[in-house]
Amino acid sequence: MDERDEWLTRLRKMRLSWPVRCARTFTPEEMARLSEGLWPASLEDRWVVWHDAGLLRAWRGATGECIYEAELTVDDGGAGHCRILRVCDEPDMYTRSAADAGELDRFEGVLALLLGRRREAAA
């Protein structure tokens, strides 16, 4: 069993979610990185991020709980587009930000771990 398959056995699907409007576009290069995923070296690493079958998910590494889930559509040029980000809405697992903008910023921080850069917040 490879590293990815081992992690996939530990990860859980999101049960309750809060929808947040999102206008995030990923370049074709970013889509390739998302499909490769971020696979932690140990349980102490904070995040697992992976895009597969049209869903981008981010799980907490230590608990395996899905915190973010985004449905991505891919255009003819290979860019991915997210219009709605679903955020875990189970208070015993995750405390959502008081404002949607704060949650989008947190999501961007998680993505920065994988994509290697921080995007500027949309005005």
Rank of each mutant, 00 (worst) to 15 (best):
R106I: 07
E120Y: 03
A112Y: 07
G116D: 08
T9S: 12
D52V: 08
E29R: 12
L111M: 13
R21F: 05
L8S: 09
A23H: 11
D76Y: 05
I67S: 03
E29D: 09
T25E: 12
L104N: 07
R21W: 04
T63S: 15
D92P: 00
C22H: 10
M1K: 02
S35L: 01
L113N: 15
R12D: 06
A112M: 11
R117N: 00
L16E: 14
L113P: 00
A101I: 10
G64N: 10
V110Q: 05
G78Y: 13
W7A: 08
A23L: 05
G37Q: 14
D100A: 15
D2M: 02
R46P: 04
L115D: 10
T63K: 10
R24F: 00
D92C: 02
D76E: 14
P91L: 12
T63I: 05
E30M: 09
R83A: 15
Y94N: 04
D89M: 00
W39T: 07
A112G: 13
L115A: 08
L111D: 05
D92G: 00
G80K: 09
E30A: 11
L113K: 15
G77N: 08
G102A: 12
T9V: 04
W18K: 13
G54A: 04
G37S: 13
W59V: 03
D75L: 11
S97R: 13
M93K: 15
R117M: 01
R86C: 08
L104A: 08
R106G: 02
L34E: 04
C88H: 01
E29W: 03
P28D: 03
S17N: 12
V110R: 07
T25A: 12
D105R: 15
D45I: 01
L111S: 07
A98M: 07
T63L: 09
E29M: 04
L114Q: 06
D52C: 00
R10I: 01
V87W: 10
T63N: 11
A23M: 05
R4T: 10
V87H: 09
F26I: 03
A79W: 10
V49R: 02
D45V: 03
L72I: 09
R106V: 11
E108L: 09
D2L: 01
M31W: 01
R83H: 15
M14D: 07
T27Y: 02
R10S: 13
G64C: 08
R117G: 06
E71Q: 14
C82G: 12
P40Y: 05
G109Q: 11
A123C: 07
L43E: 14
A121M: 13
S42K: 06
L114G: 07
E69K: 03
L55R: 14
T73V: 07
T9M: 01
L38W: 06
A58R: 08
D105V: 14
D76T: 01
L38Y: 10
R60Y: 00
A121D: 14
A79P: 05
E69S: 10
I84M: 06
L85R: 06
M93D: 13
T95C: 03
F107E: 08
S97H: 09
E71I: 02
R33M: 13
H81W: 11
G78V: 04
S97T: 00
R117Y: 10
A23W: 02
R86T: 03
G109V: 01
D105N: 13
A112P: 07
E29C: 00
R10P: 07
G109W: 01
A79H: 15
D89S: 09
R24Y: 00
K13S: 05
